[in-house]
Amino acid sequence: MYAELYCLLTECAPCPGLSEALDDQPYIDPVTDDAPWYDPGVPESALFLGVMGVDVAGFSTSTRTRAPVQLVGDGAALGIARRAHRELVYTVLLLVRDECALPYALEWLSAALQGAPCEGSCLGDEMGVFACCPQGDGLRELRHLYGVGLLDGPDVTSTRYLEEGVIAEVTFTLAAAVPWIYREPLAGLGDWITLRDGALLTYDPDEVYADCGAPTPCLSDPLCPPPPLPVRAPVPVDPCYPTGDAEFRRSVVALTPAAQPEWLESVPVLELETGGTALRRLIVRFWANPLGGDCMDVADPCAACTDIQIPYLPPGATLRVDGRTQQAEVTCAAGSQDSVTSSPTLYGPLGQSFVWPVFSCPTGLCIEILSTSATTSADARARVLLVPRSDVG
């Protein structure tokens, strides 16, 4: 094995399920296995046996911080809690057959840690790790981090010369811009839905919110109203938000409370393909459903948790609204180019400001997907995923 040099010197922790989870065949040598670092043009690459993990720090530490502000009198205002970026410090071993292969091993590791080439703004990469020794396909133990990039290193901290080769200990630090650690999406959602198969209904998107006004505070005196507040900047509103009746296609999916983790937050991921025609007036609405009622009977928008509304999507487009990274993108064909990616503007209820939803309790969910019937292609389809997250793991 590539790690035989290290295992001769120390006891290796057994993880029999790792090879199966990675679909990893038995190791022979870098040339026969066509290892990722092997380069026929660099002979010493054949003497580089690989990288072996020793330790990692940063997963078991919460990034949550709070900065209390001292009051003039006694005590303090706690302030808003927030989470900083996550730093992960890795210690690994580079295993080589002779010292001439060590510089190449360091060059390869440094290049590999740079991540994928930047396209537009550099937002980092997705990183997958196992929380413990995997079993079976490893999905239960798999975790994901987003916005990951190299922060520092790699740096050689020690080198051991043996008759069989050289072992170099190396450290490097990765930073995850998104502090959360995400699991795989819940199994209760994720099936693709053909939007044209949704029930046909007629309603006015503006009228359904007519009775959703905020209740009058109990201390408001009608004979002595409070002074008016200063004028605030207007909230941007979707300029194409419709009024009047229109025909929509309505599809509904459900998630039971039992399918959600009891102590973990979850965020949604919406994926949609428009098919052969442009899609207009996409509305995805979320309701809590703690009693597990029939989601086809849920229709009160005033009780909805939130909306995701998008006025227009071009034909042949793929949409992803990702609550893990809080980013939305649309990919579509662009003339002679293969594809182009753009960021759509997301709106909330009544075409107003959008807020990224987070579901903190296992209440179950009813999810409604609406689009105007006249613009819903026969091959348009969508799915919604729900992804649990934690700030330690």
Rank of each mutant, 00 (worst) to 15 (best):
C295F: 08
A288R: 12
S336H: 15
L291Q: 11
S339G: 07
D338F: 06
A334S: 12
D294V: 05
T306N: 14
Q337H: 05
Y312I: 00
R324D: 09
A328F: 04
P311D: 13
L270V: 13
V267H: 14
T331C: 03
D297Q: 14
R281Y: 14
R280Q: 11
A334E: 12
S339H: 12
Q326K: 13
G275A: 11
V298H: 01
T325L: 00
P290F: 02
L313M: 08
G316F: 09
P315N: 12
A317Y: 12
V284D: 00
L279C: 05
L313D: 10
L319W: 11
A303S: 12
G292T: 15
G316C: 02
L291M: 09
V298T: 15
W287D: 07
D300G: 10
T277C: 04
Q309P: 00
F286R: 05
V267W: 13
P301C: 00
A288H: 13
C302P: 07
Q309K: 07
N289P: 03
L272K: 01
D307C: 05
Q337P: 02
D300V: 02
A278W: 01
G275Y: 01
V269T: 10
D307S: 10
Y312A: 10
A304R: 01
I308L: 06
V284M: 05
D297I: 00
A334K: 07
P311G: 01
T306R: 14
L313C: 05
E271Q: 15
V321W: 01
P301I: 01
L279E: 04
N289T: 05
T274S: 14
G293N: 12
G335K: 04
C305D: 15
C295R: 04
I308P: 03
N289F: 08
L313G: 13
S336V: 08
Q337F: 12
L319R: 04
P314Q: 06
R281G: 08
